[in-house]
Structures are given as C-alpha cells and as structure tokens.
Amino acid sequence: MSTTSEIAPTKCVGPDYRAEEQKPTATVSTAVDLANVTVLSQTPQLIALLSIIRDKRTDRGDFIFYSNRIIRLLVEEGLNHLPTIEHPVTTPVGRVYDGLAFQGKICGVSIMRAGEAMEQGLRDCCRSVRIGKILIQRDEETAQPKLFYDKLPEDIADRWVLLLDPMFATGGSAIMAVEVLKSRGVPEERIIFLNILASPEGISNFAAKFPKLRTVTAFIDQGLDDKNYIVPGLGDFGDRYYSM
C-alpha cells in the first residue's frame, strides 16, 4: 500500500446548541462512503479520549482506562446491529413501556493479542458472554499472515459474532479471521467487527471484500506510512496495553 498524503479533516466539534465559534476544532475521522461501516459519532468527548490514547506520554494505566471507555462505546454501538422484536412490559408504577427484546445468541472472538484487550469492555456490557480466540501471525518465510491457533465456541455457527481487533492497518489478520469464522459456518452477515482505529484504504478494501459484514470503528485515520503503520496512529496497541 502506498503512503497517503490526504489532508486530515478538521472540524468544529461540540453539541448542536453551541455556536460554531464556541466549539473547539479537532481532526475528526476520515469520511468513507461505505454502507456497512459505522464510525462512532465524532463527539468532543470521543476525540478527547482518542487524544489521550494517541499521546505517547500517556502511561499504561491511563492507556488501559481510556481505551476501555472507547471500547465500551464500540460494544454498545456494535450490539445495536443485532435483531430485535417488540416487547412491551409493565413498569413498577403500572405504566406500559413499549420495549424491545434482542433475538439471537452472541459470542465474542478476539484476534490475539491486541483483540484480547477488548474483552473487558465486552464483558462490561454482556456479563457471561462466550469468548473465542484466534492467533494469527506473520509467517517468517512467506511474509503472509498464518493461522497458528483458534479456540471457538462449538455452536458458533448459530451465534452472532463480535470480532475484536483494535487496530486495522492493512487488515491481513482480520481478513484471515473472518475466513476462519466463515469456514466454521458463521454467515458473513452475522459478523460484527469492532475496531478502534482503521486506515481508510484498509477498511475500504475489507468492506468491499465482505459486503455483508458490519464494521464499527471509533476513527478512520489519515492513512498508512511506508511500513504500513496507521498514521498518525497510536503506536502498537498490544505493547501499550500489555507490556510497555
């Protein structure tokens, strides 16, 4: 992939009731016109959280805490794509609430190791969720991603899958993970990919390759550099979360 030289979009961000001049400016997510990609609403709060985890001076404790907050928002948004049915209930004060109930079972699948950092956020929202794992690493000889290990729920073919990977650069591992899931009988339309930071070219390619799969991301960055790192990025997510 080539280095992108596009100018990052800068906007005044803030609630609608504030005048433009009262809203501070910040770089927001690159817009992509893809029906199956949802970018979280670019609120000042989300931008501030991303600013903290992008900052190289942020220590590991803060990195974990603030990325967890973003992950929870991703999970909450991802779950919106599950099917629902009408379900009216009676409240303790006797009022009828026109409610909704969710249909279908879910599970999480994390792409090791950075994806595992998103499991806590998933559990915060779905207490006893089953979580499978997939280990994909670059093969030293071919330089291609290779499946090393997987452990998935046996009935995964009957479930909706929340696929977890915080960083999406060229998307080699995510593409392979989706192929593993499909080979276990999970239909593409029942996979929801949750991601914090993506490159525009990677995510466009992914969305075109799997048109029925849904991606939910917090931010689409400017592009990739010549080493295929996301720019401006946030560094190596796994290192910052687990070991730095």
């Binding site: 609630p15 910040a26 770089t27 992008r54 401006p232």
Partner: peptide, 25 residues
C-alpha cells in the same frame, strides 16, 4: 453528559512522532 462539558483544542504527538489535533477538557 461528558459530551456537553467545555473542551479546548490540543495537539499531541503519537508514538510514531506524528501530530494529532485533538481535544482535552
């Protein structure tokens, strides 16, 4: 609720030494 608190622009540097025009409370 936190979306409705006042923020200010801030420029931070990422571990790859790129700048990002972000926000802070």
């Amino acid at each position: 609720a936190m979306d409705n608190i006042p923020f200010a622009s801030t420029t931070i540097t990422t571990p790859l030494n790129h700048c990002y025009a972000g926000l802070k409370p």
